[in-house]
Amino acid sequence: MKALVQSFFMVFRQVRKDSMLIMVCFASVLAGLFFRFAIPRLETLLCTYFMKSSILEPHYRLFDLVLNLLAPYMLCFAASMVMLDEYDQNMTRYLSVTPLKKSGYIVSHLVIPAVLSTVVSMILVVAFHLTVWSFLDLVAVSIVSLLSAFSVALFIFTFSHNKLEGMAMAKLSGCILLGLPVPFFVQAELQYLFFAFPSFWIAKFSKEGHVVFFLVAFILSLAYIPPFLHKVERKIV
């Protein structure tokens, strides 16, 4: 346990040293402030200009969903970059044979940051929401955000040998957000082209409220983890 905490604080110090931690917190709060205060004003301006009753308002839920996913995604990305840095310096191999072990390494570097950032993102949604959220809905969506961000970090570390490839993979993994706007903008019959994206199902659950959509999102985001986790474990040693 002591090794786990020490290892987590090592990641924490590294991310803080690069100002990445400040950036993640600052960007999330800034996005929250922007969504909460600027979007409704923008809506008023747009409605007046185009003489319509609503333009952005039907999509307010989408802004809340983006806010919910933002912090876990960014912090997991930063954590995966720290892991790549340690992999580059052959530190992962040494750390995995200390009392920390492989599982402890993954928990301290990815699981704890993902869980903490999810708590932060829930607080952000409570503080800056544009639509009404029930507690259960918020927890359900946050769990899927956590799992998605976790699998993104695993994906980045698995398929990258250095930080340059890590950046390319991070860009590719940005596609996880792609499913979010689909239920809001794409015609019903074409929406299911995005069936492989957990973000699509969670947006659909959030918009239409059927529990089945949450279950699909949960199972799908969970399904991505074991193959990546297996590869990460093999890569560490």
């Binding site: 690069d18 100002s19 990445m20 950036m23 930063a78 970059m81 840095d85």
Partner: peptide, 11 residues
Amino acid sequence: ETLNQFIVATI
């Protein structure tokens, strides 16, 4: 100095 610093600076 580091990639994370670069990312922060480019935002």
